[in-house]
Design a protein around this nucleic acid. Structure first.
Lengths: 350, 350
DNA sequence: ATGAAAGCGCTAACAC
DNA sequence: GTGTTAGCGCTTTCAT
């Protein structure tokens, strides 16, 4: 391994001179800098990060902490960030929390112990106090979910708006018995989405008939069960709006399996726009979320923030607007139908 | 930051004693170890990795180098590995190559410069010689794709077998004009899959009618174009078998868009079993690949390999068998039909 | 404008 | 069993 000393010996100067030249110290003559640069190149010198870190420098590692990378939300984010950070010579490390605060804590401990340059995190519902303490010691940005304790830097989508639009769409189509399936209000995102649902209903005739099924947002099974429960009710909803990608996937599977005809019996608005939602049944009407753009914006801001060094960058947060994509899974409720219609099970195709 | 010295001072012993106690050196009395352990806990001591690395230790970082994390193959792998390595106190870092050998080289340079404990890589078609040189200096395992120059440690799926089974299924259903859409033979995986296709056909009546469309395996567009070209031919195939996930996605979209009726006009066997393949049209018959299991096996072996230290573990490679999942997109070709039938376009559902 | 020397936290060779 | 000492490669005083 080529060290600073090798360069010094070659040039018959001291190690400190070389060190300073390499870090472009103003006290070094440009002639010297020139020579040092050449020799460094020639010898293939690569600075030893471990040594630098011992002197207090932080690594070029950025911790990305997400619940589960298999979730396309998070893999999209990882991709966008990776691309973005690459240009600033930063490396992404991946930590999965599984939405478990203790796992989250373990990872954060680990990350701080390797002196990461910063952390980009989708926090669990209720991070451990120790996690909060550790996070506060490093540059950090929250993504999607947000906790006041973790600071002001946050990039997310407008969750309330997303469900407001989705629900509004159904209201405008004349639906009155509208159900919501989504995450519990533990998570701020869950709470915001539910609130969006209700505020779209407020004042409409549907307000009184609203149903909600709240459960684990990351579970397809919950989606499956929830829609089954809803359709088994005496007076089942004519439309359902969903509040998480996985719940959506569960609902879609169950609807297909049980042969409910969409949109004839039931209108459905999904959450997120996964590959395949387009070709589900009649095509899924859904909320499309600008996840990739969001992550890129977050990455850019993060780099900016790191450059500011100690002078902590101005707190910043941004929400991105979701978009309603109308496909075949929603349709107007005919006036005749509006009152009493009971969904009947269609025979699944043989 | 709590250091080894703080513990030493507290216990009025020397720093080296503490260091040895912490590393469970046999020369230290267990009483001492006990005490050191307690104080370490009490003070919240965390070993400084930078300092260790300066003494030649490698970091606890494992580089995962993949083409694109958004590809569910790779996010599945990342998840499984992350879980697996976590138990050995290893951190995963993520590098995306985009299948560009220069990007790959840049990442590998970066990884070696931070002294990663090892690298798990899905190599590009033709890695740069410098990449090869660098990789040879660290513990490494290849995943899915394999290059002789990168060593013996490899975990993959039996690509030839996958396409053999898929094609065989069609042959047994009586198909004779069977087409293959998949990656070029640049990549060893592409070559193996194509070979599997041909060997399933060998000796059957279909051998003479085989068509192939080879292109970029990671492109949905290529899949779309390829199937369009095939169906426009004078004597179009009655069945098609696919050789990559993305190509499959492109083909599915195009078939849906152009209103070809599956399996009446065309039988389709996909590659991989993405969420949503199940609910595409009549349900996609496809090759399911044990990616998660593969990655876990790889992770376990990797940890094992690292423990062996210098005594390099015996070269090992393993192939996992794929499984054919039969759903609705394939069916027997009636004898009457076998000769001359022309696919006709069905009107898309209103 | 450059050099000498100290020290970051840890480990390992060498004492006792 | 435990202490002493000497570095790993780099940055950073403090001299000159």
């Amino acid at each position: 391994m080529v060290t600073i000393k090798d360069i010094a010996r070659r040039l018959e100067v001291s190690a400190s001179t070389v060190g300073r030249a390499l870090s472009d110290d103003p006290r070094i003559s440009s002639a010297m800098k020139q020579k040092v640069g050449e020799v460094a190149n020639e010898l293939g010198y690569v600075a030893n990060r471990a040594a630098r870190m011992m002197r207090g420098a932080s690594s070029n590692l950025v911790g990305l902490v997400v619940p589960d990378i298999r979730n396309s939300f998070y893999s999209t984010i990882a991709h966008a960030l990776s691309k973005c950070l690459e240009s600033a010579d930063l490396q992404l490390t991946l930590s999965e929390t599984d939405d478990d605060r203790l796992v989250e804590l373990r990872h954060i401990r680990e990350l701080t112990s390797v002196n990461v340059a910063g952390i980009i995190i989708v926090p669990t519902a209720r991070p451990h106090p120790e996690s909060v303490r550790l996070l506060k010691m490093t540059p950090r940005i929250q993504l999607l979910r947000r906790h006041a304790a973790l600071g002001e830097h946050w990039f997310g989508i407008d969750d309330a708006q997303a469900l407001f639009q989705a629900t509004r769409h159904l209201v405008e189509l004349g639906h009155q018995r509208i159900a919501y399936i989504g995450g519990t209000t533990d998570l701020p995102t869950g709470a915001a989405r539910l609130q969006g649902f209700h505020s779209a209903l407020a004042g409409s005739k549907g307000a009184a008939h609203a149903r909600e099924e709240l459960g684990a947002p990351a579970s397809t099974d919950f989606g499956r069960d929830a829609i089954r429960r809803l359709l088994a009710q005496r007076n089942p909803p004519t439309a359902v709006v969903l509040g998480s990608v996985q719940n959506t996937q569960g609902v879609l599977e169950e609807l297909l399996a049980s042969g409910v005809s969409v949109p004839e019996q039931l209108s459905v608005v999904g959450f997120g726009d996964e590959l395949g939602f387009r070709w589900w049944g009649p095509g899924l009407t859904t909320m499309s979320l600008p996840v990739s753009e969001l992550a890129t914006a977050c990455g850019l801001w993060f780099i900016h923030q790191l450059k500011q060094k100690s002078a902590n960058a101005a707190p910043y947060s941004a929400v991105s607007p979701p978009t309603l994509v109308v496909r075949g899974s929603t349709r107007a409720l005919e006036a005749a139908n509006a009152g009493r219609s009971q969904p009947r099970l269609r025979q699944p195709a043989p």
